[in-house]
Nucleic acid binder design. Structure first.
Lengths: 259, 259
DNA sequence: CGGCTCTTTGAGCGTTCTCAAAGGGTGTGG
DNA sequence: CCACACCCTTTGAGAACGCTCAAAGAGCCG
């Protein structure tokens, strides 16, 4: 489950205390316009043609955010910007009144951040790894959208993709067996070429067990046990805790199809 | 949990067997164009101005779907239409390979149905109550969108609303305590004026315990126990099984804010 | 080589799932 | 109008999964 207030120095407590403690490096915002020189398959870009990219670049700036730096934005903040991930991984999360954290989504390069409701961010966003983001002022973005219908249409497609992803996760979380949830999660990670190498069948897990636990709505200890069981069953092999060899790929793929 | 194959005449088995058994009345599609005469607060309409409504009406037809009739569409079907709910309630669901059902969302009047991926519906849709839908051919809709940027923008806003709703549910499902989930669900229903009367504090629950169970990822029996506990605690009062008086509204509202 | 974070493993307990069965409510057919 | 059948809902008892607390091992950085 998502973790409550830190009662002691339990794992949950340590994790919860982590982020607030060290936010010495405020998000450094560099006024570097977005030149289309990215290397990673940026899904947002694929969606846009050259002219659209230019127009967006004119209003974009770059934000570098360090892992465990403070949040990019917090739920309830006045929403001034839309972000897109260029490099690294960002988590979108929501904290309940009890202080429980629930990660709603991990955002990969190409994903859009900054869903707002009534002018305020609906969720919080934090860097899982060091990452680089593009920042678009909402005000200028709106002007751009009304001027450029096609851009708008493409963003619509994008939004429905995000929606689809949210529903995917929903059906994963709903599974009773935590082991199943974990396999679904691994299958999801395997879709990213930057994390999974088909030849060696090795998967890099870029986030901690705590992050995964907050995402799959379980406890990190339970995850560790599930990893153990999967290894015992010959489904996977733990090379390092964050580097997994997928042995029974057929088994895993079965879960991927279910998404 | 979502229910598996019917092993006997258990409740789950009965529910699972229900839908496929009786699909004698295929969705009757009447070629009645959408005249803006609806009574219920249709959110889609609110979003559109008069001219936009006229344009949409030109390509829309009406679909009447009876409760427990066959599905409106099934995941994997070739996606030809976008739907919007006019009256009644529709459930969006996904079945895993094991035959487990997971309701991803209940769609109320004004909501849009028919999220597709690669030209095929991503989920299935069934009527929870008798309902009336508007049906828009995707082909014509696309033409309309490219011609009418503003309409497009409004659909974008709509899509982000749906996304927000999906994330909301996600954080609800993630709660460990089923009782909490149920309260969140009730709070969600209370937002609909057509279901909740503020004066009498009475809430109509339009779906069965099985539907709710598939939505909250639990078992109908557990739900019954939660209703019992809430009543015992003086939070609610069961007038009928589908008609609840919200006694401790402050308590319930607390959960609504967390959404 | 500490100190730190992250991960793994163990033991005990609680919630919830499953199976089982009985009690309402509604609709249909006689 | 009544009776039956079906569906929905509720309650009970036992078993299992996962959470919590506790602690030790592993990797990384200064």
């Amino acid at each position: 489950m998502a973790h409550k207030e830190p009662p002691s120095h339990s794992p949950a407590a340590r994790r919860a205390a982590r982020a607030p403690g060290k936010a010495p490096s405020a998000p450094s915002i560099q006024a570097i316009p977005w030149t289309a020189t990215g290397d990673d398959a940026s899904r947002v870009r694929q969606l846009l043609n050259r002219r659209e990219q230019r127009e967006l670049a004119n209003i974009a700036s770059v934000v570098d955010l360090r892992r465990n730096a403070g949040p990019l934005f917090v739920a309830g903040d006045k929403a001034g910007y839309l972000y897109s991930v260029d490099l690294g991984i960002v988590r979108i999360l929501k904290e309940s009144f009890a202080g429980e954290r629930q990660v709603l989504a991990f955002m990969f390069p190409g994903d859009l951040l900054g869903l707002a409701e009534a002018g305020r961010y609906a969720n919080s966003a934090e860097a899982v790894t060091n990452c680089r983001l593009y920042r678009y002022p909402l005000k200028e973005l709106e002007q751009l959208l009304t001027r450029d219908p096609l851009l708008d249409l493409h963003l619509l497609v994008k939004a429905s993709h995000e929606l689809r992803a949210a529903q995917r996760i929903l059906s994963v979380i709903a599974r009773q067996d935590v082991c199943d949830r974990l396999v679904c999660f691994l299958a999801l990670l395997m879709r990213h070429e930057s994390l999974y190498d088909r030849k060696s069948r090795r998967l890099v897990i870029p986030m901690t067990r705590f992050d995964i636990a907050d995402y799959l709505a379980t406890a990190p200890e339970t995850l560790a046990r599930c990893f153990g069981r999967l290894e015992q069953q010959g489904r996977i092999r733990r090379i390092e805790s964050r580097l997994i060899e997928m042995v029974d790929t057929a088994f895993i793929s079965g879960f991927d199809n279910a998404l």
